[in-house]
Amino acid sequence: MLDLSIEPDDHAILGELSARVSPGDRICLLGPSGIGKTTLLNAIAGLDPGVAGGVRSGDSSPRIGYLFQEHRLLPWRTLQQNLRLVGVSGGEAEELLMAVGLAGKADYFPDQLSLGMARRAALARCLAIRPQLLLMDEPFASLDPDTAGTLKSLIQGILDAHPGMAMICVTHDAGDAETLANRLWYLDGKPARLQWDGPVESAGAVRHCLDGLRLGARA
């Protein structure tokens, strides 16, 4: 069980916020653009010095895999070296790359890869630390529909293979929420708070979020 608590930050982007996240929770975080969704992810990962709080697992801080919008692999290290830097062996690195469809690319440098491939390599790094919590910041942004579709089914497969892992995924797209999530968070207001926290099965929850996003047409 992960306990999430955020104190209001210096810049008044985030308000007070607390939630419990269970293993296997797949949360999609929706909200108007610029409301502070990335700030919230950073706060959860403990990356925002202006925000007190974060996520705890009992007395310890959980292992967090963070798929940033940019790949943030070290450009001067090969994929294999990038993975080994977070603590896996060479063999495990090969397996992880194979798992994200990058078999044979171990010796490539990140900038030699297309955007979609680099994002998959970054996903492999998330998995390398066997995360208790996987954070994703708009994983399908700026990918063409085919590449985004491939990545989406890849992520679905990974979530199925790791039933004990929790996920929080920022997205703009209601379709992502419907396919990936079993729980929805809706962030809004100034300072931003969780205006909605409910299971994704509830059609009302989805519609509420979609209305909020003014994407009602898709519901």
Binding site: N42, A45, G46, I64, Y66, F68, L74, R77, L85, R125
Partner: peptide
């Protein structure tokens, strides 16, 4: 600073941060 955040998330040691992130 984005690589700095990455190094924090993945718990790079001080030495790793210096050698792998800063020096290059």
């Amino acid at each position: 600073s984005r690589l700095e955040q990455m190094a924090r998330v993945y718990r790079f040691t001080r030495w790793q941060r210096f050698r792998e992130v800063w020096v290059p």
